[in-house]
Design a protein around this nucleic acid. Structure first.
Lengths: 140, 140
DNA sequence: AATATAAATGCTACCAAATTGCATTAATAA
DNA sequence: TTATTAATGCAATTTGGTAGCATTTATATT
C-alpha cells in the first residue's frame, strides 16, 4: 500500500493526529488544499477556495500552527504576502523556490538544493533561502 | 582625490544630479543616511533617524525613485518590511544578503555572489536572490 | 533677478496583510 | 457523559505601504 492508495482525508487526519493537532474541519480542509496544490498558496488562495467558511484569524492561526509543527514551511516570494507549502520528507533540506513572472505562482523545487556559499570572516551561517524568478515550465 | 576625500554632501548632490533627480532636502538627507549605513535600512529606520521632518509618503516615494534609478536596491529579508541599500558598482551583479538573527540587521555581502543553480527542465531562470540567516561578525 | 513649469511634498484617507483579546464552541480525554 | 483544553469567530487593531490632490519648491528660461 503506497501513498497513492491512501485516501487523502485519512492521510490528512493521520498527519494531524501525529502532530497532536485536533482534527477540526478548518484544519482538515486547509491541509487538504495544501496537499493538493502543486505550488505554494497564500491566505488569499485559501479564502478564495474555501469561501467564507472560516474566519481570517482561524486561517492564519491554522497556518501558523502547521508551520510550528513543521508540516508546512513559509515561502517569502516578495509578493507582499507569505505563501506556504507542505514540507515533504525529500525536501527537508533547504530547497530552492521558483517564482514565475508570468503566472505569478511560486513553486518548491525540492530537487534543487541551495548551494553552500562562503560568507566573509566572522559571519556564521545558519540557514539560507534562495528565490529564483523566471518563467515556469507551464508558461515557457 | 579619492572617494574618501569627497565630502559626503557633494557626493550625494552629484548622485542626484547624475540621475536627474531634483536635489530636495528629503532626498539629500535620505540618500546620505543610506550612504552612511553599513547595513540595509527600512522606512522605520529612516523615520527614526530623521524624526518627523518628512512625511511618510515622501520617504516611501523617495525610496521608490532611488530604486527606479538604480541608486539603491530593495532587500526582502522576511522581516515584513522592505529594506534598502545603496547599489555600489562592485555589487551590481547579484550578491548575497545576510540577516543576523541576533542584531536583526541585514547586510549586503557584495563579494559573495549568488551561485548559479540548475533548475528542472522547462524552468527559465531570470534572476535570483539569496538570503542567509545567521550571526553577523559584530555579534559573533 | 524674475518668472514659468514641472516635479516633489504634505496632508488625509485609504488598502492589504496579519495579529490580538475575548467570549463562545467544539474536540478529546477521563 | 462530563470536564478540560484547545480552536473558533468576531471585532478591533497594528503595520507597511499607496493614492489623490492642493500647495510648495527646484530648476530652466528669459
Amino acid at each position: 500500500m503506497n501513498a497513492e492508495t491512501i485516501p487523502m482525508d485519512k492521510n490528512v487526519e493521520e498527519m494531524l493526529r501525529s502532530h497532536r493537532l485536533k482534527r477540526t474541519s478548518a484544519r482538515i480542509e486547509i491541509l487538504s488544499l495544501l496537499l493538493e496544490s502543486s505550488h505554494t498558496i497564500s491566505y488569499n488562495d485559501i479564502s478564495e477556495e474555501l469561501g467564507d467558511n472560516f474566519d481570517k484569524s482561524t486561517v492564519y492561526r491554522t497556518l501558523n500552527s502547521f508551520e510550528e509543527k513543521g508540516i508546512i514551511h513559509a515561502v517569502n516570494d516578495g509578493s507582499g504576502g507569505i505563501k506556504y507549502a507542505v514540507t515533504k520528507q525529500e525536501s527537508e533540506d533547504a530547497h530552492v523556490h521558483f517564482k514565475c513572472d508570468s503566472c505569478e505562482q511560486t513553486y518548491c523545487l525540492p530537487d534543487t538544493k541551495i548551494p553552500r556559499v562562503h560568507a566573509p570572516d566572522g559571519f556564521i551561517i545558519n540557514r539560507s533561502s534562495l528565490l529564483i524568478n523566471g518563467t515556469c515550465k507551464y508558461c515557457s
